[in-house]
């Protein structure tokens, strides 16, 4: 029985979004596990809360960050959707919008920022540079795609993307959040592998500290 329904975004029909297939595939996968009605209802409440209160982190390395600022400013006003509170501390943010080129020197810093964020956390790669390296693919110092270091949820190409494109990306993320399971089952397998690795590393650090 399909318990998880198609996600709905206010005043935009489902069909107008692109790449619905991936989403439906995810829904099918989650439904295969099967859950009971109560849990799903609780899930829906949780997902409603989460997807409507995505606090992005104040992060930007170059041009795309200016469009992020424009998005916060009066004409585009991201407060309308509940993306209002841009937190400057990664601990309090839910979403990291990777705005701008990530270089070799920045990569460990970005990774650390991501690690500092509290779960559940999401990543949107904004702009050509973060998606693939953009015009700087030939460079010796640019990470060719931020997905090499972080698990990316949504890609928003453009150089820089318009604020509307930001919104589209954010709404795709909202759709993704709306079909998640909170109680019980696992949502994203690839993240788990990532997490396991992280935990292993952390244990090592603790061990070495204790030995010292």
């Amino acid at each position: 029985m399909a318990l998880i329904k198609k996600p709905n975004i206010k005043s935009i029909p489902y069909e107008e979004f692109k790449d619905n297939e991936t989403l439906e595939q995810m829904i099918d996968q989650l439904n295969e596990n099967g859950t009971n009605v109560i849990v799903t209802t609780a899930d829906q409440l949780m997902n409603w809360g989460r997807s409507n209160s995505v606090w992005p982190m104040n992060f930007g390395t170059s041009c795309c960050a200016i469009e992020l600022m424009a998005m916060g400013a009066a004409r585009f006003d991201m407060a309308r959707f509940g993306f209002e509170v841009t937190r400057t501390s990664p601990r309090q943010a839910d979403l990291i919008l990777v705005c701008g080129t990530i270089t070799y020197k920045m990569a460990p810093v970005l990774k650390r920022l991501y690690d500092q964020m509290a779960d559940p956390k999401y990543v949107i790669a904004i702009g050509g540079c973060t998606c693939t390296g953009g015009p700087f693919t030939k460079s010796y110092h640019v990470v060719k795609g931020v997905d090499k270091i972080l698990p990316v949820d949504v890609y928003v190409p453009g150089c820089p993307p318009r604020p509307e494109a930001f919104y589209y990306g954010m709404m795709q993320l909202q759709r993704k959040m709306k079909i998640e399971n909170y109680f019980g089952t696992v949502n994203r397998k690839e993240i788990d592998a990532y997490k396991r690795e992280e935990e292993k590393k952390e244990k090592e650090v603790i061990n070495t500290e204790q030995e010292a």
């Binding site: 809360g49 209160s53 006003d77």
Partner: peptide
């Protein structure tokens, strides 16, 4: 600006959404 206006009428439920999210962080 307009401020929150998508979650509930005039964004009235916005803060509740924030609370749910914060509880599950």
């Amino acid at each position: 600006r307009i401020g929150p206006n998508r979650v509930g009428k005039w964004g009235l439920l916005q803060v509740f959404a924030d609370v749910f999210k914060m509880l599950s962080k």
